[in-house]
Simulated assay, not measured.
Amino acid sequence: MPSPAEFAKSTSRANGSELVRFEKVTKRYGDVTVLDELDFSVSTGKHVTLIGPSGSGKTTILRLLMTLVRPDEGTIRVDGDYLTHEERGGRLIKAGEKHVREVRKKIGMVFQQFNLFPNMRVLRNVMEAPVHVLGLPKDEAEQRARELIELVGLTEHLDKYPTQLSGGQQQRVAIARALAMRPQVLLLDEVTSALDPELVQGVLDVLRDIAHSTDITMLVVTHEMSFARDISDAVLMFDKGKIVESGPPDKIFSEPEHQRTRDFLSTVL
């Protein structure tokens, strides 16, 4: 089996440099403010987990990074580049779609739902985007896809359609598909929430292996607190669109300072 570290080589940057930066980002839906002048950053090679109650704004952060929604105020940078803005004549303007697509190539996401192409076998699901988005030659994309399918433990299933796989297997294909784009940052949005309980551990084990064996940057939303504690460099506790507390996992889970954090953890641990 190839080393997981091979799949982070082309995405590596100097660890500790800033990769993602939110500056005064506000997002509203009608009269509801989901994110309220949010400031935070993620450094290259770090794994940052967002925790907090439903509706606290965690998933909105990932959706903003994928440009599924746009901020109402503030800016987002990825590897120094503005995501939804461009600099023209010394001022910021709304970015064109070409600019957004180029910056978004640096980001990969695994969703709650697997979102696999139902008419494509596993191998093609994983190699499709590198061919059509990155322009990778088909033979190179296929080799990359086969290695990643092996990494997630599904070599014997590469000729199957998604409907022939369990939910856990489909999610592992989705992880391989995201990694096939060689993103600089991998977003994980409650990736086990749609799985039957007995399938959760296999997916978490794959993600632990990737987290511990590669230098890929991760931004994670999860209710799996033991997983968060195991893989995170930092944990951010969200409530009502704001960060109420942040720190290393041992501190957040063992000695939280904020009462809201203590209340939340008492319901999930």
Rank of each mutant, 00 (worst) to 15 (best):
S226N: 08
F7L: 05
L62D: 07
A129V: 12
D189H: 05
V235L: 02
T84G: 05
V185A: 05
V173T: 01
R101N: 07
Q184M: 10
D230H: 13
V203I: 11
T155D: 07
L35H: 05
K251A: 03
A145Y: 06
T60W: 05
A95L: 09
E128V: 04
K46N: 14
E37P: 02
M127V: 03
T26L: 03
T49M: 00
A14P: 15
E73G: 11
I107V: 13
L236Q: 08
L188I: 11
E156Q: 13
H85F: 13
D189P: 10
G52P: 01
L134V: 11
K240D: 10
D239S: 08
Y29V: 08
E150K: 06
L64E: 12
T59Q: 10
G45A: 10
L148W: 10
L123Q: 03
E87M: 03
I243M: 13
S213Q: 15
V268D: 01
P53W: 04
P4C: 07
A234I: 14
G168R: 00
V203M: 08
D250A: 00
S10A: 15
F22L: 12
T267F: 10
T217N: 10
Q112I: 10
Y161N: 03
A180N: 06
L187H: 04
K24Q: 15
G52A: 04
M237Q: 03
N115D: 13
V110R: 01
S54T: 14
L265R: 09
M225C: 10
K138E: 15
V25C: 02
Q112A: 08
